Computed example of a mutant assay.
Amino acid sequence: MDGPKDEVFRSKVAWVFGWLWLAFAAWNTFDLIARGSMPSALIAGAVLGVITALVFLMAMRPAIVLEDGGVRIRNPLRNAYIPWNAIGDVIVTNAIVIEAGRTTVRCWTPQTTARERARASARAAKAASSADASRTDRAVAEAVGTRTHADWVAHRITETGAMRQDASSGETSVTWSPVALAVTAAAVALVAVTIVLS
């Protein structure tokens, strides 16, 4: 029997931007190979490569994954894993912060801005002041309407942790991501090669 399906939370805007950038980078790489001339093509390729590495690390890689045994956090350069029974407080400031004993993990995504929080508060106030809403409807609108995407994800982490306590597996860990380090090393190597050859 299959366990629950993993839930993945990330910035959708960053994810879409990342894929658009990859398409742009692929097209420009083809163009540089087909029509570029040295050393300008090499320099342009290095700039394109470094920006693509940064887009991957900062826009496409970060995510919060709710797994069967715990929550996995992918930040730009590091991975963290916290089993459900180790999760303490889940706090939202401008980012989600998960406390697990002596370990505190700040999640890169999803984040909330002061503007997003102000919009959510305005929506809640508008719904709460609606003339045709009952007192209960207004209270619900006020409580739920002030939530941002980050608030909702934090609530989902807390709720899932409470439901899956018995399914907890593994140990709390925070480690460097081999993929992120490889992408960073490739970008640095590309710059070094460009400096040597140009």
Results as ranks from 00 to 15, higher is better:
residue 169 S to Q: 12
residue 146 T to G: 11
residue 60 M to G: 00
residue 35 R to W: 09
residue 125 A to P: 00
residue 65 V to R: 12
residue 14 A to V: 03
residue 83 P to A: 04
residue 158 T to C: 09
residue 171 E to R: 15
residue 148 T to F: 05
residue 189 A to K: 02
residue 192 A to T: 13
residue 5 K to W: 03
residue 142 E to D: 14
residue 184 T to A: 15
residue 104 T to A: 09
residue 75 N to A: 06
residue 47 V to P: 00
residue 123 R to D: 05
residue 185 A to E: 02
residue 193 V to Q: 14
residue 190 L to W: 07
residue 191 V to I: 07
residue 16 V to D: 09
residue 164 R to V: 06
residue 156 R to Y: 01
residue 55 V to E: 00
residue 34 A to H: 08
residue 150 A to N: 04
residue 11 S to N: 13
residue 157 I to M: 07
residue 62 P to V: 12
residue 174 V to N: 04
residue 149 H to V: 12
residue 45 G to W: 02
residue 80 A to V: 03
residue 17 F to I: 13
residue 44 A to K: 14
residue 66 L to S: 03
residue 75 N to T: 04
residue 106 R to N: 14
residue 125 A to H: 09
residue 188 V to G: 04
residue 79 N to K: 11
residue 163 M to N: 08
residue 52 T to I: 02
residue 109 T to E: 12
residue 71 V to M: 06
residue 106 R to Y: 08
residue 48 L to Y: 05
residue 192 A to W: 09
residue 80 A to M: 04
residue 60 M to N: 05
residue 140 V to Q: 02
residue 191 V to Q: 00
residue 140 V to N: 03
residue 47 V to T: 05
residue 195 I to V: 14
residue 79 N to G: 01
residue 116 E to W: 06
residue 87 I to S: 03
residue 184 T to C: 04
residue 15 W to S: 03
residue 98 I to G: 02
residue 11 S to Q: 03
residue 62 P to H: 10
residue 111 Q to R: 13
residue 166 D to P: 04
residue 145 G to D: 02
residue 121 S to D: 07
residue 68 D to H: 12
residue 29 T to S: 09
residue 177 S to W: 03
residue 194 T to S: 15
residue 5 K to G: 09
residue 121 S to R: 11
residue 161 G to Q: 00
residue 9 F to A: 03
residue 149 H to N: 13
residue 189 A to T: 09
residue 78 R to L: 07
residue 37 S to R: 12
residue 188 V to P: 00
residue 55 V to S: 01
residue 156 R to K: 15
residue 77 L to K: 08
residue 27 W to D: 04
residue 177 S to D: 15
residue 20 L to D: 05
residue 74 R to T: 02
residue 61 R to M: 15
residue 113 T to C: 07
residue 77 L to R: 10
residue 104 T to P: 05
residue 169 S to R: 13
residue 145 G to T: 01
residue 40 S to N: 05
residue 89 D to E: 14
residue 8 V to R: 14
residue 48 L to P: 01
residue 99 E to N: 13
residue 195 I to Q: 10
residue 151 D to V: 04
residue 27 W to T: 07
residue 57 L to A: 11
residue 139 A to T: 03
residue 86 A to R: 13
residue 59 A to N: 11
residue 173 S to Y: 06
residue 55 V to I: 14
residue 118 A to M: 06
residue 158 T to L: 15
residue 179 V to F: 15
residue 103 T to Q: 10
residue 40 S to Q: 11
residue 55 V to W: 00
residue 62 P to K: 05
residue 21 W to M: 11
residue 132 D to I: 07
residue 32 L to G: 15
residue 174 V to I: 14
residue 147 R to N: 14
residue 1 M to P: 12
residue 36 G to F: 10
residue 68 D to I: 11
residue 119 R to S: 09
residue 21 W to V: 12
residue 193 V to E: 12
residue 151 D to P: 00
residue 142 E to W: 10
residue 22 L to H: 08
residue 48 L to A: 10
residue 61 R to E: 11
residue 54 L to I: 08
residue 150 A to I: 04
residue 53 A to K: 04
residue 134 S to A: 12
residue 121 S to T: 03
residue 36 G to L: 06
residue 135 R to E: 13
residue 184 T to G: 07
residue 98 I to F: 06
residue 119 R to P: 00
residue 100 A to G: 10
residue 127 A to G: 04
residue 11 S to C: 13
residue 14 A to Y: 12
residue 73 I to K: 01
residue 63 A to T: 04
residue 112 T to A: 14
residue 145 G to W: 00
residue 29 T to G: 06
residue 45 G to H: 05
residue 38 M to I: 08
residue 186 A to G: 07
